[in-house]
């Protein structure tokens, strides 16, 4: 069997998909990154190679997400793309004619507007991570409920409580206040979903024309309460695709397929990278007052990449090949 790998290394989850040559997703994995992107990728590659039939040929690899550069170096990627493009590519491939993509991940949320299959506009949340998956995670653990149950409990809420969604800190104190007043959990969670959706539409979706079909993806799309809150707020059906939580990886695989389509051989180093030892380290360069934090990646004891220097002194030294 031949196919393509897509790897999306986000702040919270690391997702890997294997797609055959007809772009059917055969295998998909959703793992927690736990702050160790390389370890997560290695674990993921190992798991997925065990699931695939022997003699599977990987024709191309694409990486995306905030860890895309790092991962791209580790696995030898053919396409390294930002997550906005990857999500848009995946959504328009799996849901032809999609005009709006709502995406909420662990640390960021974005809206992508497509018209006639082309991205015409997008926005990402600014510095604040209010209203993203990690906030929901945190609230679920504070209330001692599993994040997987969050959505179903919220769906049972009949009269959602009004909660301030502008800022995660305010939302939390508002929730505690409402709890102490005696509102039940279902209504509070339903209210939290509505508050987050309100904040998202206000902040990220500001001024964008939301037209159907609307696709909701990213880890938070698993939360049925959030989906219902979106449907209520925009008055349209919100479609959650089958691979909603690995859409970035699906996009990366599609982009990899595109990258090698012109007969370029893949740069994939093979599933063997799962067993190599990778070590990331950093040091502060004192060559000038910028004091850049240079990050160094070593594969089996040999430095394979450096980045983070503004002037290129360290990264170029390596590219030129005159560095041990």
């Amino acid at each position: 069997m031949k196919g393509y790998l897509g790897i999306d290394v986000g702040s919270v989850s690391t997702n890997i998909v294997f797609m055959d040559e007809d772009t059917n997703v055969l295998e998909s994995l959703y793992l927690r990154t736990n702050g160790q992107p390389v370890v997560a990728v290695q674990r993921g590659l190992k798991q997925i190679s065990e699931k695939l039939p022997p003699h599977t040929v990987v024709r191309g690899v694409g990486t995306t997400g905030s860890g895309r550069q790092l991962t791209g170096i580790v696995v030898g990627a053919d396409a390294i793309k930002n997550e906005i493009t990857a999500h848009a590519v995946a959504a328009s491939h799996l849901v032809p004619g999609v005009q709006t993509v709502l995406e909420i991940g662990g640390q960021d949320s974005k809206i992508i507007i497509l018209r006639n299959g082309v991205v015409t506009d997008f926005a990402m949340n600014t510095v604040c991570a209010a209203g993203t998956g990690s906030f929901l995670d945190q609230q679920a653990s504070r209330l001692n409920i599993a994040i997987e149950e969050f959505g179903d409990i919220a769906l049972r809420g009949k009269t959602p409580v009004r909660i301030a969604g502008r800022c995660a800190v305010f939302a939390e104190s508002d929730m505690i206040h409402k709890q102490q007043m005696g509102f039940n959990l279902e209504d509070i969670l339903a209210g939290l979903c509505e508050a987050l959706v309100r904040n998202y539409l206000n902040n990220v979706g500001k001024g964008k024309e939301i037209l159907g079909p609307v696709v909701f993806q990213g880890g938070v799309a698993a939360n049925a309460g959030m989906r219902r809150a979106f449907e209520r707020a925009i008055g349209m059906e919100v479609h959650v695709p089958k691979y909603f939580n690995v859409m970035g990886a699906v996009g990366a695989a599609l982009l990899a397929r595109d990258a090698v389509s012109r007969g370029v051989p893949t740069r994939f180093k093979g599933f063997g990278v799962a067993d190599l030892e990778y070590k990331a380290g950093s040091f502060e360069c004192d060559g000038c007052p910028n004091l850049c934090e240079v990050i160094e990646m070593a594969e089996a004891g040999r430095v394979i990449a450096r980045w983070g220097d503004r002037c290129g002194k360290w990264s170029n030294a390596l590219a030129a090949g005159n560095c041990s």
Binding site: S66, E83, I84, V119, M124
Partner: peptide, 29 residues
Amino acid sequence: INLDEHTGEAGIVTRLEAFLDMVRWRRTA
């Protein structure tokens, strides 16, 4: 694009890449 004291470049790189992708994609369409 909003600038502040942060020196983490990932946010700006992602946005610029996505913006240029979008511009090129729109043009070919």
